[in-house]
């Protein structure tokens, strides 16, 4: 701690010049202490506001963790399927375990369905559908060339925000 006494004690013959010098040093120290105190308070306020901001961002952006275990598959029928038959196939596929939704396009004879991967797979669904009515049908398989194109909003991993979102969503 620096004060007038220690300042004078360190100098055997204090003069008026020295007194003014010591006084000035004390004044500077006090100013520094005041500055540090203000800085500490300012830092605390900024810290509190930052924490509030982080909590706010968390509360308004939190999402249920998205499940990535959903898959889309398609079966192309090589024969005409009317509306009634199409509905029968759709209802049958919908009744299979872990199938979350199905749609039959009876104009183009295409079945599309969504299922949860794990216990269910597209080979199993395809075989069950085939056995339902001995249909002429094929599993839709995408060529490698076609797989290189796709809907842009489906999987944005090329931008910084896309990559950051994908990273944060892991938590």
């Amino acid at each position: 701690m620096f004060n007038l006494n220690t300042c004078l004690f360190q100098n055997k013959n204090p003069s008026s010049i020295l007194l003014r010098k010591c006084d000035k040093q004390i004044s500077n120290k006090m100013k520094n202490r005041k500055f540090l105190k203000v800085l500490a308070w300012l830092g605390s306020v900024v810290a509190v506001l930052f924490v509030v901001l982080v909590v706010h961002i968390y509360l308004v952006t939190r999402h249920p963790k998205p499940t990535n275990q959903i898959q889309l598959s398609r079966i192309d029928f090589k024969q005409n399927i009317n509306e009634v038959e199409g509905k029968k196939i759709k209802d049958f596929v919908n009744s299979l375990p872990d199938v979350k939704g199905a749609y039959f396009n009876d104009k183009d004879n295409i079945l599309v369905y969504i299922y949860k991967i794990g216990n269910q797979n597209s080979f199993n669904v395809y075989n069950k559908v085939k056995s339902l009515g001995n249909y002429k049908a094929e599993r839709y398989v995408v060529t490698e060339a076609a797989a290189n194109t796709g809907c842009p909003i489906g999987k944005d991993q090329t931008t910084f925000t896309g990559m950051l979102s994908a990273y944060i969503s892991k938590f």
Partner: peptide, 22 residues
């Protein structure tokens, strides 16, 4: 179909995040 093949293709690759993201 020409705009969405990747959604089906990801079945083989084991990456199924495209559908959920879409």
């Amino acid at each position: 179909a020409k705009y969405f093949p990747v959604l089906f293709a990801e079945l083989g690759a084991g990456n199924t995040s495209g559908l959920v993201a879409l």
